[in-house]
Amino acid sequence: MDKIRLGPRARFARILTSIAAEQGRWLTRAILALSLLGVCQPQWADGLSEKQIKAAYLYNFAKFVEWPADMLSPNAEILLCIVGNNALDGALDGLNGRNVGEHPLRVEQKNYADLSVAGCHLLYIGDSEQAHFLVILTALGNAPTLTLSDIDDFAEKGGGIGLLFRDNKVVFEVNLESIRKAGLHLPSQLLNIASYVYGR
């Protein structure tokens, strides 16, 4: 009875085992055993892509960051601006229209060349802008905008929050000096779990 209910994986495992039994050499046996392991292993990955994880981080930061009162009045829209070609493969577009607490989030694509990024509450700089993200940060000055990016060195060179891929996970770095200059506030529990905090 049990035999009938065997899944395709188990059936395949049986075929492999029988092949292994016929082959004498240790090497073939080893390779077969290892393929078997590969076939029979369970699903364990979380199934989110790196870009989706980064977008989820951004959504969380939007909940935690506190803007100055004149920048964000109650129930007003939070504007998330994106600079860069195909930033996070469009994963951020899914955030458009979601609520961050009492504030609805609106996503807007901007062009690097016009630099009209003032008025954005959040600014995500895609990795296509690696060459000139410093120019964007310079143009932004001390505007009350939380800048985020997955460009390497982003936080180290003055960006607000950098998202980094390390050991198959996504971690984040914060440049506290830049956050303070922008007049923003991040709760200390967020800083405590950051992988690195510059300008503490």
Binding site: K51, N168, I193
Partner: peptide, 14 residues
């Protein structure tokens, strides 16, 4: 965020 920090990136989209 705590969950995100522990999350393994699915290798396909590394």
């Amino acid at each position: 965020i705590n969950e995100l920090m522990q999350m393994e990136v699915s290798s396909a989209s590394r």
